[in-house]
Computed example of a mutant assay.
Amino acid sequence: MNRDGKGTISVRLVEEALQGFTAPSRSAGQLLHQLGLDAIDLGDSEARIDVAEYSKLWRRLARHFDDEFFGMDARRMRTGSFAFVCRAAMAQPTLDSALRVVLEFFRLTFEGFAGELYRSESLAEVTLTERPEAQPLRAFSYFTFWMLLHGLACWLVGRRIPLLAVELRCDEPAYTDDYRVMFSRNLRFARPTTRIIFAAEALDLPVRRSELELHGFLAHAPSNILVKYRDTTSLASRIKAQLRELPAECWPTSEGLAQTLCVSPSTLRRRLAEAGQTYQAIKDQVRQEMATLWLADASITYADIAERLGFADVSSFYKAFRKWSGTNPGQYRSLILRGDEMGHSASR
């Protein structure tokens, strides 16, 4: 166990994974021992464990209880289910048809919810429908489902599919840091429905995976999914954190940034290049994060957002947002606010 963010998962998510199988007669410590795993100090909420260790816990829990969804639905997701749905999905020509096959399989698997894929102009969303009288699931339940679905989708097309927003019916839990790194900084809790939103252009990407690649993917799951999300201590993550604390007009130049990091400009460029990043790309990523948050607030005008992000005019902001996200601000705002309006109508 360590406190280094690189390649690690919060111990709080270990506690969440164990929760469905603990009982007065079987503590978390006893369960870990039963699974043949080293003891973990769950009382140290700031501690982290290696992704490989979390992956081992994940697989052993699933095999021991014959449930790949950790006892979080009335029906078990029996061991081998994820492998089965991966094989079914990879036989599809595009991500669109693959996701529909996956969601149909999960609809037959789970009793408490069902997922549906919708496409609206340049945006796509996967929405979970739950029984109206049902209490919201734990945040960990929703995020586990999204990890399975989104992780599989990214593998099928061989690229990361950015999520513009993740909305959940449940209240915000005490811990969300890893979730924001895993999925999106734009997490919205206590919403009318649970859904993820992303650019529809991803649905047209071809699925090109072989049986050999599937064996490799399954052999290393879920650590090969989780490791792509991690590293809150990376140089890029540190730069993003610094930019989020400042108005866009106060963001440093690359030379000024290098000075604050106590390195030369050339060293900064080299280190970012080694990580496949540029300073400009990092600034654009933070601008997109801020834009998606502000677009969900109808009281903030497009002109206000453009100004806050340092654009000369609204037109420049529109072009940039389209480049970042594959959609335009108007379509994204319309989809987000429509979900809010549906929630208000249902509560009346």
Rank of each mutant, 00 (worst) to 15 (best):
T292N: 06
A23W: 14
E125P: 02
S141F: 14
V314K: 03
E274W: 09
E249Q: 06
R160T: 05
E213Q: 05
K228P: 10
M342L: 14
V11Q: 03
Y179N: 00
F110Y: 12
A320S: 12
E289T: 11
K228T: 13
Y279V: 07
T144H: 07
V263G: 10
S27W: 15
A62Q: 04
Y175H: 14
K240G: 15
M1Q: 07
L37D: 05
A134H: 07
T301Y: 12
F145V: 06
A221E: 14
R188F: 14
A23R: 05
G29Y: 07
V14H: 04
P265R: 01
R63N: 06
R119S: 11
D177W: 14
V157A: 05
L123M: 09
D66M: 12
Y318C: 11
E111L: 13
L152R: 00
R87F: 14
R59V: 13
L272S: 03
G310P: 08
V101R: 00
W146E: 00
F69E: 00
A199I: 11
Q30P: 08
P192C: 14
I161Q: 03
T267C: 05
F105K: 00
I305L: 09
F70W: 10
S345H: 08
A62D: 09
L187N: 07
M342W: 15
H150G: 03
Q135D: 15
R75K: 11
A273W: 13
S27L: 10
G158H: 04
G7D: 12
D50V: 13
R209T: 09
S254G: 11
A98T: 04
V263F: 15
S237A: 14
W251Q: 02
E249L: 14
V207N: 01
A303K: 10
S55Y: 13
V263Q: 09
A303E: 11
V11N: 02
R131G: 03
T327D: 07
D44C: 03
T79H: 04
G36F: 11
P93N: 02
R169H: 07
P192Q: 11
L99N: 05
P173A: 01
P24C: 02
C250H: 12
G20H: 07
T267G: 03
G339Y: 09
L214C: 10
T327A: 11
M290P: 09
R60L: 15
F183R: 01
L95Y: 05
H344W: 12
G256Y: 13
E68Y: 03
Q259P: 12
E172Y: 05
